Computed example of a mutant assay.
Amino acid sequence: MATTLKTCILNGQLIPLSQATISLANIEYSYGFGVYESVMVLRGKPIFAQEHCERLLESASAIELQHPFSTETMHAWLHTLIEQISQERYNCKMLLIGAKEAGNAQLAILPLNPRFPEKKLYTYGAPVITYAYQRTIPNAKTLNMLGSYLAYREAQKQNCYEALLQDTEGNLREGTRTNFFVVSGGTILSPPNEKILEGITRKHILDIAAKEGIPVRYTDIPVQTLGEYDSAFLSSSTGKIMPVRKIGDIEYTEIPETTRRLMELYDALLKKQSPENRNA
């Protein structure tokens, strides 16, 4: 069994990660005609794998990417790769690259070390920026990532955790790799589903909110209204629920009980999903 992340799957075959290459002449890849998902693996178990596999297929369908792969195939290949790795926590990136013919599509599964947020951010909140960019097909997680790359690069230049994407109407939709929420008087507000990529973590947060009786409202969140809310937070597979301390010049001085409760309950959900050992 490998102890480092040096093996991957390419169309069902285990190969060294160094050999997982693609030609510079591949037009589909160059133009971003592909979709991807990142699955967290904890102690040998892929977390919410079924949902990630289903969303990968939904993204492919949204851009009319034809391929021969099923969720069952993805599950089998994912587990084949996981069996080769003893590292306790890492991510598996599933990368589906389209082709002119469905039979030539490529599915790669790559193990990667995630960049975990600093622990202090969960206590004090993370600073973020806003960036004017609107994804072309919001419900698909595609390889067309230039806008998000530039936005995140700008956030890094300003020593910020994330960049929130602002649409042409001045509304904040999502982060480059996160979903976005604000809290007002105990009610959670989130952008409408049709305008964003519905994150797997976001879906579980909203399920928790429903079970706990926490009101949720789906609505546009204009940049100019940020000062009217009690707080804000982000969600992602790696970052879980990340409270926001500052958005540009708007600062949130406290993390309200609603957000803290969601953080506790989501952590508890992840703990249930993760086996105590690899044989669990």
Rank of each mutant, 00 (worst) to 15 (best):
A209R: 07
Y149F: 14
F69T: 02
K141D: 10
V41M: 10
L5Y: 03
N26W: 06
E212R: 12
E118S: 12
E174Y: 04
Q66G: 08
F69Y: 12
Y124G: 13
E257D: 15
Q156W: 14
E83I: 01
G239A: 15
E194T: 13
S86M: 15
G213I: 06
Y122I: 06
N277I: 05
L226V: 01
L234G: 01
M74F: 02
L197C: 04
K195W: 04
P192V: 02
L165M: 10
I15P: 04
V223Q: 14
Q156S: 13
L265C: 10
N26Q: 07
M145A: 13
L197P: 00
D220A: 08
G185M: 08
F33T: 01
Q87E: 14
A99D: 12
T219P: 01
A25K: 13
N26Y: 05
I15F: 00
L189W: 11
L96N: 01
E28F: 08
I247A: 05
T258F: 06
L24G: 03
E276M: 09
I208G: 09
T168F: 05
P222Y: 05
Q106C: 10
G103A: 13
E264L: 12
E83S: 12
T178R: 01
S236Y: 03
A140M: 06
P192W: 03
K195C: 12
M74E: 00
T178M: 06
E198G: 11
F116R: 07
L107M: 10
P68V: 00
P138I: 01
M145E: 14
E64K: 08
F180D: 11
E88L: 15
L110D: 07
R217C: 12
R261L: 15
I22S: 09
L65T: 00
Y131D: 11
E198D: 15
A20H: 07
L226R: 00
P192F: 04
P138N: 04
P111H: 02
H204I: 06
L5A: 05
D207Q: 15
E174S: 07
G12C: 03
I255G: 11
F69H: 00
L269P: 07
L269K: 13
N279L: 15
V183L: 06
L262G: 06
T178F: 03
R260M: 13
L96P: 01
P222H: 03
